[in-house]
Every structure is written in C-alpha cells, then in structure tokens.
Amino acid sequence: MEDISISIEEKNGWSVLFLQGRLDRVNAEDVGSKAEETMATAAKMAADLSGLEYISSAGIRVLLRLAKKSKADGKEFVICGADGFVKEILEDSNMDMLVTMINSVEQLP
C-alpha cells in the first residue's frame, strides 16, 4: 500500500476512517476490508476523504459497499471533506445522492 495510508480514530461516538493519497484498483481491496472491519464495530461511521488526491471506480465501489452495509445495519454513514477531483468523481457517480456528504469532519454532529 504504497500510495495510500489509512487511519481510524473515534470522535464523538463516530468512527472516522481517514484516507490519504490515491485510492485505486490496486489498493481498493485492502482499504475495503479495513473499512468494513471498522464498520462492524462502529456505531456511526464517517469517511474522511480530505487527504485523498485520486479515486477511481474501484474506490467508489468501496464507498458504495460501506453505504449499503450501513443502510442494512441501520447505522449512520457520512462522507466528509471530499474535494476537487474526488468530489467530481463522487458527483459523477451520483454518490452525493446516496450518502450524506459534509465539507469537513469538523461538521459531524
């Protein structure tokens, strides 16, 4: 996992997944499994994409799976800090219509 770093921190009852670097087809599976582990134990989950420079459809699929799982489990899932190219691709994929998107992790309730 050269191009990406993942960290998880708890914040006001939210488990926040912080991704930094490029999320592509090569590292998407590892990121996905890590995120789903976190989701399993979390009560509410947020993905902080403010450090992400690049995302491809493989990354969108990871986020989509998390969103589906949270809905199935009745948990809250929020995407924070998506910007620039990443925001463009999320919007192209209509993710903004499916998942609550906020500008910053600071805005989490």
């Binding site: 491809s56 459809s57 969108i60 699929r61 989509l64 799976r65 969103a67 589906k68 809905k71 199935a72 691709i89 192209d92 994929s93 209509n94 219509m97 499916l98 998942v99």
Partner: peptide, 21 residues
C-alpha cells in the same frame, strides 16, 4: 442506473461510464 436507490444500486459497471464522461 446511477439514479437507483442505495439498496438497488449496483456495485459494478461504473468504470466505463466514468471513462465516457
């Protein structure tokens, strides 16, 4: 179908769609 509700939304098929855009 990117307008589908979350539970109906398919995971795959997005790649080429994005390419075309």
């Amino acid at each position: 179908d990117i307008d589908a509700a979350l539970e109906d939304r398919e995971i795959g098929g997005l790649g080429i769609y994005l390419v075309k855009k």
